[in-house]
Write a protein that binds this DNA or RNA. Structure first.
Lengths: 189, 189
DNA sequence: CCGATCATGTAATCGGTTACATGATTAC
DNA sequence: GTAATCATGTAACCGATTACATGATCGG
């Protein structure tokens, strides 16, 4: 039950509707927490029932009425408690790594195709994170923002996301090079 | 249903018992797939029922009898198919990042404590991966191993695990520095 | 007119986690 | 003697995924 805290953390930067939240979980938040729209709507309902967030209806012209949620004091207290509690070690589940683990036994070309795809995906995310970081820090240099800027939390998690995707891209490219080189110097298995 | 493929990939390097498999999922495999012993035993049962692995009993003196499993031809075919199929984008769920996301609103000292802990954990994993890589490549240099060594799959995934933990450590340290610096130059929120 | 975006869900199923259970051996 | 390691599970529950459902407006 930790999706709740991810949602609370995401709502700290300002009121969001369920729909806007799903967008946040598609980009920024998605780097450290992943959830689908249905889950988010369900979680918002539960969080409101528990008094950790408060929703208010906002009518719009030419758009369906939406509900904006903000974190309550009880919600903040919950987050504070969560922050102090033991953090489960983060874990990854990655299909691509499973495939590479089997590299000695499966078709190399297929593998290289998958690695190429992932490298491109990682590059796209790198570009996106670059933009996001620039948007957050505005006119400030990174150094100045890290010293004084706000909000610092989303900026820091974004930096981790960026480094992660750079790591992904670099590893994919290196792995492709290694596999190609072996292909040329070895008899096939 | 992708734990199956992680298990199959792990069993490729040789016969393992359920218990040995849980150990593998604690170290090497844990970097890209996470599962608990109960899950693994259950999955082994299912895989055997489906004919993707074959088990054989091995009696031991002074130790309970164990069952060693190896991948069958059908299992290999399944892995081949999996490798060619669409890979779900990998995802992370990380409590620590949720906490940092809320950095503007929660206690900085608590956060720094958590980051310090994680940095130490990452360093321990870095050391472990270093040893694992040296064990796999034996006397060869990394360059030579990447060109000719075997098994290459586990080596490559291990390299990713290593880089990931180095990224974790570096980010934790940088984040601690940033938070400390801000603590000294800002009035508290 | 057609696909994308805004906006919010329900229902069934599946995969994963937590708790509990057993029992022997070896190392400190 | 007591904790750690070897060895393997069952049962209940909870969280997450997949499939399905609705309906309006905007941009090309």
């Amino acid at each position: 039950m930790a999706l709740r805290h991810a949602v609370l953390a995401a709502l700290l930067e300002g009121e969001l509707s369920g729909y806007q939240l799903t967008k946040a979980f598609d980009i920024g938040v998605a780097n450290f927490w992943h959830a689908q729209p249905q889950q988010l709507y369900a979680e918002l309902t539960r969080l409101e029932k528990d008094g950790l967030i408060a929703g208010r209806e906002v009518a719009q012209e030419a758009r369906p009425t939406k509900r904006l949620f903000q974190v309550t004091d009880a919600g903040l207290a919950e987050l504070e408690e969560f922050t102090a509690a033991f953090a489960k070690p983060s874990f990854i589940r990655d299909d691509l790594l499973v495939k590479v683990q089997a590299a000695d036994h499966v078709d190399t070309e297929t593998l290289i195709g998958q690695l190429t795809e992932r490298a491109a995906f990682a590059q796209a995310k790198i570009d996106l994170f670059g933009k996001l970081l620039r948007r957050i820090r505005g006119d400030l240099t990174e150094e100045a923002f890290l010293r004084h800027g706000r909000p610092i939390g989303p900026y820091l998690t974004c930096l981790r996301g960026l480094a992660l995707e750079q790591g992904n891209r670099d590893w994919c490219e290196r792995t492709i090079t290694v596999l190609r080189q072996r292909e040329h110097t070895h008899a096939r298995h």
